[in-house]
Every structure is written in C-alpha cells, then in structure tokens.
Simulated assay, not measured.
Amino acid sequence: MRVFSVACIAALSAGNLVSAGSWFGGNDASVKEADKVPGNSPLQFCEKDHGQDIVHIKQVDLLPNPPESGAELVIHATGTVSETIEDGAYVQLVVKYGLIRLVSTKASLCEQVENVDLKCPIEKGVLSITKSVDIPKEVPPGTYNVFADVYNADHKPITCLQATVTFGMNKKTAESIESAGDL
C-alpha cells in the first residue's frame, strides 16, 4: 500500500540512509503475535493505540525474509488510507545497530515516497505497492533496530512501525575473513 510504503519507504529510506536492509530482518521471539504486521516480514506495530491511524496496513511481504546483504529485496505491501496524506507529512526515524544509534532524524514523508514512484498528496483508498531494493553487500553483520513514527502535516498519526533485523555473515564475507587470516 502506498502510504504503508510511506512508513515502509520511510523505512526503506532509512535503508537509503543506513543501507536498505536495516529496516527488515529476523524474528524477535519476545514480540507478541498481535503486534506483528500481517504477512511475511519482521515488521511490528509500535506499542501504542493505532485506532486513529490514517493508514491501516493489511499485509506486508518481503522476499527473501529475512533479507540478505548483497541481495535484492522485494517488498509488497497493501492497506487502506483513510484520509489524504498531505505535503508536510513526516516520519520520526531512529535506526540502531545493537545499542549504537546510527540515525535519529525527522524526514519528509513526501520526499521518501518518491522512492516508490508516489507523490503527495496521497488520496484515501485501498492501495498496493511493490518495490525492489538492492541491499548493499557491505552491511555489517549484527542486529539493527528501526523505529518509524509517521504523522500527517496536521500531526495526526499515519502509522508507527518497528522492526529488528539480524544480518549474519554471508558466504563471501566468511571467505574473505578466512582469506585474511591466511595472510
């Protein structure tokens, strides 16, 4: 869905800020199933009331899930926008690598949705989006936590999402480390 992609793109754009993979990833066993965004992704709704959210996410699927560094990630999202999202909408974005805060910023949502070929205003209705992104092979192994709290220009909540991803060493990285050890 387009506005989910707002959050997702805010997330993806966090990906652009920190590497596209930072938004998505592994499963957190402590997460309550009711808080999970429907579909095949690690996305979760933030722990707050979502009754007034402008975007109601129906489903988000990632392929592959979890994402892999150096690979293409396909995101498919669907949902409903209950009122027009105007220019001036914004996302409060925090990305952490373990305990280290990599990004803490307020970004224009309307600029971010351009990454999925959308433009503000985003009209109300049922929306669907599919987007492919390349995850850089240089994404360091470790756990990334992303928090995106999204608001319309009038500060009404659009949605709030979070995700945890753990990137391990892929085969190439492991081979490089082994080769370096032989020197």
Rank of each mutant, 00 (worst) to 15 (best):
M169R: 12
L63W: 11
S108L: 10
K58M: 09
A34H: 08
P136S: 15
I177L: 15
G88S: 11
S69L: 09
D134V: 11
C160R: 01
G142T: 04
D28K: 07
S19H: 07
F167Q: 02
P42H: 08
D87A: 13
D87E: 14
D28G: 03
I158H: 02
D53W: 03
P64G: 00
D182C: 13
G125E: 09
K48N: 06
I122D: 04
G125W: 09
P121S: 10
K36A: 03
L127S: 11
K124L: 12
A29C: 06
H56D: 13
Q112G: 11
E178C: 07
V133G: 00
K32W: 09
S13H: 10
E33H: 05
V60M: 03
K124Y: 08
C46P: 03
V146Q: 07
L43M: 08
D154V: 04
V31P: 03
M1R: 08
E72R: 13
S5P: 03
A89V: 10
P42R: 07
G15Y: 01
Y97P: 01
I129Q: 11
H76E: 13
S13G: 11
D149K: 05
N65C: 06
S108G: 14
S128W: 00
N40W: 02
E83L: 09
G39M: 00
A20T: 06
A20L: 06
C46L: 15
S19R: 02
D61E: 07
P136G: 13
K172R: 11
C8N: 12
C160K: 00
V74I: 06
A153K: 14
S30Q: 10
D61Q: 01
C46I: 13
D53L: 02
I9L: 15
H76Y: 09
Y97C: 02
D117I: 02
H76V: 08
E123I: 06
G70M: 02
C120K: 05
P38W: 05
I57P: 00
D134K: 14
V74D: 01
K96G: 00
G142E: 10
H56V: 15
M169Q: 15
K36F: 02
Q44H: 12
I75N: 01
H76R: 09
H155L: 05
